[in-house]
């Protein structure tokens, strides 16, 4: 079994009458020789690390700081705890979770790269907020993580998951596609609906460049993770409502790969274009890494 595309994944799930997470278990059993229980246990460890990384940045007592960011998650929490949220409490909480994980990453804390360290806020944020809203169990989240991994595997095989290769669309875009598919499946949507959600995510931020100030995963990365989180949630909502992506998943992934290849090197993690190249971006770089 070697699933290489969305079409292959759909036909596998159809044939075996299984959800995507089940296909992921079958795939990994063959890939690594691990048993189903080992796979689920290992995923549980990752989920625990994710939960801790969310809690840390929201904790009043903690003071986690990178070079340029820190304290944003806490600020947002204080705001939605005492005000009516502009985007609704579910969304507002979710983006505070994403901010927290990225702050933990920037302050040399422990995170789960998913698919990368730079985009590690999206999946935990979306999954935890969905868990809270729908009272899901950890077991459901483990399944969601497996669903999302299958989407990531297909994107990785046909396009890219790294900002240096494909821009931020490949990191935060992929993370949101993965998260959206997971939500759809956790809430009872079909495999097809899950892939529609993933397609919508990739389309929504296609072409997004990678331009980290001073080469550090902080600016604009923290806020990119919040748009990735929102992107996943709105796409999942649309797919669950029966809205479809007009362009099929595999074609969207192909398009994203083409766009990534067309992107100039200065917009692919080299910190030479985009917001990294602005006067403020340059000044910050000079302050943080005077020799670079």
């Amino acid at each position: 079994m070697n699933i290489k595309s969305g079409i292959e994944l759909l036909s596998y799930c159809e044939e075996k009458k299984v959800p995507i997470y089940h296909a992921a278990i079958d795939y990994e059993k063959q890939n690594s020789g691990m048993s189903e229980k080992e796979i689920l246990d290992k995923m549980m460890i990752s989920w625990n690390v994710m939960k801790v990384s969310i809690a840390k940045g929201l904790d009043k007592k903690q003071n986690i700081k990178g070079k340029m960011i820190g304290g944003e998650a806490k600020k947002l929490k204080e705001y939605y705890d005492s005000h009516v949220s502009v985007c609704g409490l579910t969304m507002s909480k979710a983006i505070s979770y994403a901010l927290s994980v990225i702050e933990v990453n920037a302050s040399m804390g422990r995170i789960v790269a998913c698919p990368t360290a730079g985009s590690s806020g999206v999946l935990p944020a979306v999954l935890l907020s969905t868990k809270e809203t729908f009272n899901l169990l950890d077991k459901d989240i483990i399944h969601g993580l497996l669903t999302s991994s299958m989407v990531g595997i297909i994107i990785g095989k046909n396009a890219s998951l790294s900002g240096a290769q494909g821009g931020c669309q490949a990191e935060v875009g992929s993370a949101s596609a993965m998260a959206a598919a997971a939500v759809v499946e956790m809430l009872g949507g079909s495999c097809e609906q899950a892939l529609h959600a993933a397609s919508m995510c990739l389309k929504n931020i296609m072409g997004l460049v990678c331009d980290p100030v001073a080469g550090l995963v902080e600016v604009p990365c923290a806020k990119r993770n919040t748009i990735g989180t929102a992107n996943a949630m709105i796409s999942a909502e649309m797919a669950l409502a029966g809205i479809v992506s007009i362009i099929p998943f595999d074609e969207v992934v192909y398009a994203m790969d083409r766009v990534g290849r067309m992107m100039p090197v200065c917009l692919r993690e080299t910190a030479e274009g985009g917001v990294a190249a602005t006067p403020t971006g340059q000044r910050l770089k000079e302050e943080i890494m005077p020799k670079a």
């Binding site: 990994e28 890939n31 990453n105 422990r110 790269a113 990368t116 990531g152 990785g156 995963v217």
Partner: peptide, 24 residues
Amino acid sequence: MEQFGVFDIIGPIMIGPSSSHTAG
């Protein structure tokens, strides 16, 4: 075509900020 396992996508568990400059 590059090969990936489930835990290449969800993982690794690492100390940030950067897989190449820190974890590696």
